[in-house]
Design a protein around this nucleic acid. Sequence first.
RNA 1: GCGCCCGUAGCUCAACUGGAUAGAGCAUCGGCCUUCUAAGCCGAGGGUUGCAGGUUCAAGCCCUGCCGGGCGUGCCA
Length: 561
Amino acid sequence: MKPQIAELLSAAVSQLKTDGVIPADHEARIQVDNTRDKSHGDLATNLALTLAKPAGKNPRQLAQALVDALPESALVEKVDIAGPGFINFFLSQASTNSLLQNILEQKEDYGRNHSGEGKKVQVEFVSANPTGPLHIGHGRGAAVGDCICRLLEANGWDVTREFYYNDAGAQINNLALSVQARCKGLTPEHESWPEDGYRGDYIKDLADSFMNGDTVQSEDQSFTGTGDADDLDAIRHFAVAYLRREQDLDLKAFEVNFDVYFLESSLYTDGKVDAAVKTLIDNGYTYEEGGALWLRTTDFGDDKDRVMRKTDGGYTYFVPDVAYHLDKWQRGFTRVVNEQGADHHSTITRVRAGLQGLEADIPTGWPDYVLHQMVTVMRGGEEVKISKRAGSYVTLRDLIDEVGRDATRYFLAARKADSQLTFDIDLARAQSSDNPVYYIQYAHARVCSIFRKLAEAEQSWTVEQGMAALDQLALDSEKDLIVTLGRFPDVVKKAGAANEPHQIANYLKELASDFHTYYNSEKTLVEDEALRNARLTLAEAVRQVIYNGLLLLGVSAPEEM
RNA sequence: GCGCCCGUAGCUCAACUGGAUAGAGCAUCGGCCUUCUAAGCCGAGGGUUGCAGGUUCAAGCCCUGCCGGGCGUGCCA
């Protein structure tokens, strides 16, 4: 309903410009907010406050002038001027009726918009290296990243989900050496175990599988173990394929899917790394020193220059990353969101510097980054630090197995990414109102239950009957609930613009709470047929919006609990 | 030392890109089942938004300086 009110205000502003009250060249930013206090109506604007200075008038006078210039609208019951000059709108029954009608007509589309205009956006997330099972930090990245994708889709963007993984380099070599050591019967306690080797139990499983000659198949590759413990290259390939398969299975269990798996190694084989390096050299942003090639990142705001090519001839990690991002740009993604752990934030400056050095007309602040902070896992009031399988960290699989996909997704996506997160396993498992996931899902199930009861009583309800009866909804609690339903499209828009899925989670909690309150105070299946039909319409609208919201989080909406 | 992020009720977190009296849940205390699922609802107490300045008609939010925590500060990724 905000857009309609904003339109009325816009018309009023134009009128006042014509009248010479407001300077004609002033660009007014019209902001319509939900009110916190019901005595302030349903929606409010600070327009008179922001226009006071350019108009050279006191805000209350200006507010009165704006109100006088507002076009008539059936949506508005009453307009007040309050406080320092806020304009408060009280919505009419006609507006709440039409809102319910919209929800029931648009169904799954209610809340979606076309602001992205079908433009291409790429979201890169998880991007775990294939050196072990996914840990809880990857889980947070997966939940947040996937929800961002769903939000962007809801806002009309054409989204590509991409997973980038490092299948070359020092860590992979380290992995291969660890597996090889296991193939030769060594354990991590042994004195000749590789320094900085991976020690988890999964290394042993992997070695056994390689020695058995198993064939592993992942999303994008397959490889058969040769059983030759001296063939480090074969071990490397096998280990990568094996762990990729394992990560794929975890992601599938988490209901996170990718459109593109991008291999770092392909940047080398396609010559894209060399090409990027050559361009940087040709553009004069590099120099040799101490046997290494340096990129002058200080030209682009870094606090010191960075090594590109090491003395051993290999490139540092951010060089292929620059080539990768140039590739993204060339694929036509004018908007790219990179969801990563905050421990990698130092790459941002380097990648952006490298991209600027390529002089490819890439905007300075491109791409966007969403960084998530660390996750701490608690059980029984104690911090959980390790899993048996991975050894040194809690895996995503552990969580899914213990608390389920819905709760895991919800808890990992329900917090602002840039604050540290405490994952309380006991709470996530709780089947009570303490647990926000159950609380929200239960609201959905309750509506379904009402309709089951209706069928049992051999009564019926249709949208048409409901629409005809909407004037029966006269209670404050009913209007409150409808106003909350009306906020949903705006929440989707704002959450999408800010890459903040947690806003959806918060909204759903609020909506569920409003509904539970209403459910408890007013019976839906009353004798009076018109009132019953009206309340069923409201209940169905609530169900639809909860369903739509849960879908954005990738959490299921059960019909019974 | 320097850079980035965070600091809100005892705990976990909100506060809609600067708005009106900072809100929920948990925990504590007190109520509500003959009634569509009590897996729920209602009520009470609980705050100098880390500290000190500044900008603004208006600051939890923006600026400066401190304090505390996290991450980074690799020719690791």
